[in-house]
């Protein structure tokens, strides 16, 4: 049950994350709610599958405050689609709960927006925008937002390939042993 609560909290966090992502982009709240419902189905104590529909309000399980916040934004009807394995009620399977959860494509004033969340072992590993239109300049703002990124997705750089090093301010003493000092020495 503790694991289930953890997973519920993680899913609720995903909902909050998506809502925050959307609210920050000034998408209207009624649109944002459509995405969160795919997670609200999971937070219900009796409905464990992502395809669970409806009755998020009837959940009587001891949900965490985070869960409550997540499901309270739901509109009540499950409109999300999902792929991947759904969490089940057995502990062993719950620990491995994961999959890819997609929200409904929504028409916003920024264009069409759809969000996909990937969850592995109860942990959100990625949030991606599945579909963005950029027929308006505003939609660029959405795609310009900061999203979770795996370290494998960024360019793996070696100091030999760069010309300068950015980082939090180093003191004169720390500079002596810094990568920038090595570059400067090499460029003498």
């Amino acid at each position: 049950m503790r694991l289930r609560a953890g997973i519920s909290a993680a899913l609720a966090s995903a909902a909050i994350l998506v809502v925050g992502w959307q609210a920050g982009a000034h998408v209207s709240e009624s649109n944002a709610s459509a995405v969160t419902t795919s997670f609200a189905g999971n937070t219900g104590g009796t409905n464990t599958g992502p395809t669970a529909n409806g009755t998020t309000g009837s959940s009587a399980s001891g949900s965490s405050p985070g869960t409550g916040a997540g499901s309270s934004t739901g509109s009540g009807s499950s409109s999300g689609s999902s792929t991947g394995s759904s969490s089940s009620s057995s502990l062993g399977a719950s620990a491995k709960a994961g999959g890819t959860y997609a929200g409904t494509a929504m028409e916003t004033r920024f264009g069409t927006v759809q969000v996909q969340v990937t969850i592995k072992a109860g942990v959100i590993t990625d949030v991606t925008a599945l579909h963005l239109t950029d027929n308006e300049q505003r939609s660029v703002q959405i795609s310009a937002r900061a999203a979770p990124l795996l370290r494998s997705e960024v360019l793996s750089a070696q100091s030999a390939n760069v010309q300068t090093i950015g980082g939090a301010t180093v003191t004169s003493e720390a500079y002596l042993t810094s990568l920038q000092a090595a570059l400067d020495a090499a460029h003498f």
């Binding site: 750089a157 100091s159 390939n161 760069v162 010309q163 300068t164 090093i165 950015g166 980082g167 939090a168 990568l179």
Partner: peptide
């Protein structure tokens, strides 16, 4: 372009 590395904290 100039290529700036970013230190791993």
């Amino acid at each position: 372009p100039w290529l700036a590395g970013i230190v791993d904290p």
